[in-house]
């Protein structure tokens, strides 16, 4: 996506109010005519990153498709908190089938639209990290490989939160979960495991892969918009902090997500046809400790005596990401805010 850096008065938080932007650059969410795809009244926890991400992503997809959208949902928190029978928070056509088959169900919906000549109706499938990198991976890889016309969105909260915070293939090293407990000489999740799902998606050579966090919702909306401008299999991986599972304060969801990006632990980038085309630069590089220490899932790494050795290993991961993706930029660019132009 071409981006034109736009200079704004520095507001400290790097956030910019919609009122400072031209109409066309304002968020979908700031539009009174937004679709409220995921409406109020659902049962998500306070500070839920997934509810926030899904609402922005789906509303952006609805705008991009002029309301011609069908969503398929994997089993998980998002499904459970949005549709306690007989209520539903979805104001869009929405189907939940199973935990591991959302990509294939979406393929079926897309095939039905194609065969009926309803080419303007588009399909989004969504799942948590378990439904994406673990139990749904086979169907997802198949959907990618066939390049079916589906945007798949993974809301990554790095563990099985719906079942009580168990480890997934997206759980980071050293994180405490109910199945990677903070005991023994190597507390928490082990190092050297887990899937780098965005890169796995890229390896399929699909048209579009992007990552985003709920700390930059404007960026998330832009990426959904960009994805819906394309056809074929597209993948969006959104980091969504889970206050319950991460042991972070409900009011810190955005902060935690921002620190994940600013430390380099969660690289935010776009890739087209398997090649990285854009990275979101780190603005204030900060140590991983600032990110880890506000989450109880990493609490065993701090205090007395703490585990500075493990923190250092995590810092090395962040440093590797920064070098690999080129996440640091020069001072001048660092002082700008970028918006989609």
């Amino acid at each position: 996506m071409s981006r034109q850096p736009v200079h704004f008065y520095q507001v400290g938080s790097f956030a910019v109010g919609n009122r400072l932007l031209d109409d066309e650059d304002r968020t979908v969410q700031s539009d009174p005519g937004r679709s409220d795809s995921l409406d109020s009244g659902h049962r998500a926890c306070q500070g839920c990153g997934e509810a926030l991400g899904a609402r922005y992503a789906l509303d952006a997809a609805m705008r991009a498709t002029n309301g011609q959208l069908i969503a398929v949902n994997a089993t998980g928190c998002l499904e459970v908190f949005s549709t306690p029978y007989p209520e539903t928070s979805w104001r869009i056509a929405w189907l939940h089938s199973l935990f591991g088959n959302a990509p294939a169900v979406a393929t079926g919906v897309a095939a039905a639209m194609k065969v009926k000549g309803l080419n303007d109706v588009r399909v989004v499938a969504q799942a948590g990290d378990g439904g994406t990198v673990d139990i749904g991976f086979g169907c997802l890889s198949g959907m990618f490989e066939r390049n079916d016309d589906v945007l798949f969105i993974c809301y990554d909260n790095e563990a099985y939160m719906n079942t009580g915070v168990q480890r997934s293939g997206a759980t980071p090293p050293a994180a405490r979960t109910a199945t990677t407990e903070a005991v023994g000489p190597q507390p928490g999740n082990v190092f050297g495991q887990g899937k780098d799902m965005p890169r796995l998606a890229m390896a399929h050579g699909i048209p579009y892969v992007a990552t985003a966090t709920v700390a930059d919702l404007h960026d998330l909306e832009n990426k959904v918009q960009r994805a819906m401008e394309m056809h074929g299999a597209r993948y969006l991986h959104v980091l969504v902090p889970c206050p319950l599972g991460w042991g972070s304060a409900s009011c810190d969801t955005i902060k935690v997500a921002r620190l994940a990006k600013e430390t380099g632990l969660f690289p935010v980038f776009e890739a087209e046809n398997g090649v990285v085309t854009n990275v979101s630069p780190i603005r204030h590089r900060t140590s991983v400790e600032s990110y880890l220490s506000i989450q109880k899932r990493f609490g065993h790494l701090f205090g007395t005596p703490g585990r500075p050795d493990i923190v250092a290993r995590i810092q090395a991961i962040a440093d590797h990401n920064i070098a690999h993706y080129g996440l640091l930029v020069d001072e001048e660019r660092d002082a700008t805010l970028e918006v989609s132009a």
Partner: peptide, 22 residues
């Protein structure tokens, strides 16, 4: 006509298609 990677996907694609009216 869709070739898929498993029977689990075959039935899942059928579910999506049927729910979408095909």
């Amino acid at each position: 006509f869709i070739n898929v990677e498993s029977e689990f996907a075959a039935m899942s694609v059928s579910i999506g298609a049927s729910a979408a009216g095909a």
